[in-house]
Design a protein around this nucleic acid. Structure first.
Lengths: 223, 223
DNA sequence: GGAGAACCGTAACGTACGGTACGGTGTTTT
DNA sequence: AAAACACCGTACCGTACGTTACGGTTCTCC
């Protein structure tokens, strides 16, 4: 109780950020079994400092998740003039960005850690899974929601529940990529593949939800 | 080396199956931190027996994953007469079954374990993730493949790559359910919800891949 | 009925790791 | 300059867990 652990004060020193980056690097290359000793050695700091700054192991992990989340704040996707081309462009750019994020080694390692810690029964009041979910999946949903609703206002797409439409879009984009990567499947999404998948998913989504004029019956047989 | 660990001999005694069921039960209710002592106590057997039967902790986990996989072999989905109604029925039944499997506590706990162990660096030559992937996702794909290709042969659906079409289907069915459950999100898929989602996903898939006559332009605004 | 195997329960061992304490060093403050 | 502070490196402690060892009990087979 002597220290305040700057729980979400978010006042991170340069040095502290470097420590958290070391944690991320260690997670990526060594897996989820990262020990405090390994972190201290990698970051060239003492364990005492780690405990003073982050309280305990759980606090360190939580801070790391928040730190990574704060780095992934991607661009905004809404537009002023909204025709079908602009909407499609926004969706494709979002899909490509999201695919590249979830297939990045850092994201995989982070999700792996949060999932592993998720089932730990009583221990650890700070649920990493909830943090990842709030800063990842749900934050993304909130960021894309205005795009969907602007598209509906403009009469380009039609749906009753934004959330359901968004979940369909996310399903078309991600498919089984995330679970396969988490389970260790080696499918490397290169740049062009990501672009192609993003376009395919967006066209499929527009085929399902687009209004009559702009949605071709079956845009192309992508598969 | 005195014992043969019956690696994949699959000659499991009743007693051994009971032990593995105890492991599953323990995984579900206590999370991934299951210890050999806890397993022995829960299964009312000695640790010495555990090690004689399964070699080491990794062997026990591997046997557990295989055992669970052998219990989930669901029904077959292909038909003789194949009209659009039969195809839709097969797909809906598959989707509902798969949704109920991936949302079951056992499946969640098992995937959590496999994912957690996935990033453990050098340790553990037996990759649980690969086993789960082979017996789960890939086995499912192989089982549904004949349905897809029969549908194409019958001219009901059109695609060039079966795998890609299947992945689109799986994306429409699962959406973000699995990752959210793994991260600890509490979304309980009740029976009717599963049925509704399965029907929605199947209709969306048929809208995308169905051939002209049977695929209404936009079947219903499900969302 | 007795020998031997299979197995249960528990104690014991070695290691790994989270967390703490302490000496040493460089930097800031007064 | 001396005191105060922040931090590094390392040694240390307690515990938890994987693994092994052992005495006692039940079952099988002759």
């Amino acid at each position: 109780m002597a220290t305040q652990h700057d729980s979400q004060g978010e006042a991170l020193t340069e040095r502290q950020q470097a420590v958290l980056d070391a944690v991320l690097a260690l997670m990526v290359e060594k897996g989820g079994d990262l020990t405090m000793t390994a972190v201290a050695r990698r970051a060239s700091c003492s364990k005492e400092t780690l405990y003073k700054w982050f309280g305990d192991r759980d606090g360190l992990l939580t801070a790391t998740v928040r730190w990574q989340a704060s780095k992934v704040r991607a661009g905004n996707y809404d537009r002023q003039r909204l025709d079908v081309s602009a909407l499609r462009d926004s969706l494709v750019r979002f899909a490509a960005n999201w695919l590249s994020v979830i297939s990045s080694p850092t994201s995989i390692a982070l999700n792996r850690l949060a999932i592993a810690q998720g089932g730990k029964g009583d221990k650890g009041a700070s649920n990493l899974g909830a943090i990842v979910l709030a800063n990842g999946r749900f934050a993304i949903g909130e960021r894309l929601r205005p795009v969907f609703e602007a598209g509906r206002e403009a009469g380009l797409i039609a749906f009753t529940d934004t959330e359901t439409a968004f979940r369909t879009f996310i399903g078309l984009v991600g498919r089984d990529v995330q679970i396969r990567l988490l389970l260790g499947d080696t499918l490397d999404l290169a740049g062009p593949e990501i672009e192609r998948d993003a376009a395919r998913a967006t066209d499929q989504f527009l085929a399902l939800y687009g209004t009559g004029d702009n949605a071709p019956r079956r845009p192309t047989i992508h598969a």
